[in-house]
Write a protein that binds this DNA or RNA. Structure first.
Lengths: 123, 123
DNA sequence: GTTGTATTCAACCAGTTAGTTGAGCAAGGA
DNA sequence: TCCTTGCTCAACTAACTGGTTGAATACAAC
């Protein structure tokens, strides 16, 4: 699966059960048992899912007696959104330039949004 | 791997080679051969990667003689960002409430920075 | 100390994945 | 027509995944 964090985060969220757990943890911290409850798989399977999320840095666990409460580490999401946004924007700008070219080819003197297209925005 | 699109998109991007290809395609369309060139794996392997991206809806292919140019379908990214943003925000709001509670417990009348802190990505 | 509860570790199994090689197909050019 | 190019399909393999069960660990409570 490749050992970089971005790969681990994407892989972790590729499973609907784990996305479910993230959704649950967004509401509030929960123990392994609590997380396991809604599903009809073994607690061990859930524990494994949590390990995957935790290896990806999406979840951290503390200790409270026998319990190991899980906590969502939402900052890791930024890693993904940054990656996604970067290439989404890049592609989008390309389409906009294409639009402009097509408009020009039509002899359409006014490019969709003057000054807005044409790179630059790259922030 | 679960057959819903969100799972397929996350799974597709869990591979660094495929993320690389997406990055390449964000610059401009490319044929399978062009995409294969930088890597020392077989063209067949690359073709498989493209199939994965294409099944996820991230890439589409047209025909130009023998060539099958690949095109990045950036809108699918929105599916992910929406999912991510939803839970990131939910978690963040929870932390802010917690902050407020802690501040109150300290007798600190002013919660750090109402609504401002860290955020940024919200757009 | 023994028992009970919450969780993880270890070993195993079936299904999937990422790669391989070899063959096949579609289109353009000799 | 035959050959070459660009790509995909098919079959195989090694490694990984998501699940299982059973044993081990950590702590609390009796």
């Amino acid at each position: 699966m490749a050992d970089d964090q971005l790969s681990r985060v994407f892989a972790a969220l590729a499973d609907p059960t784990r996305r479910d757990m993230v959704a649950r943890l967004a509401v509030g911290d929960a123990t392994v048992g609590e997380l396991a409850h809604p599903y009809d798989v073994s607690v061990q399977a859930v524990s494994k899912h949590i390990k995957v999320l935790s290896d990806a840095g999406l979840v951290s666990q503390s200790r409270d007696a026998q319990r190991r409460p899980c906590h969502l580490e939402a900052e890791v999401f930024d890693l993904m959104t940054k990656w996604i946004e970067r290439y989404r924007q890049q592609a989008q700008e390309r389409y906009e330039r294409l639009d402009a070219v097509l408009a020009e080819m039509r002899g359409d003197e006014q490019p969709t949004h003057p000054g807005n297209r044409e790179q630059g925005a790259a922030s």
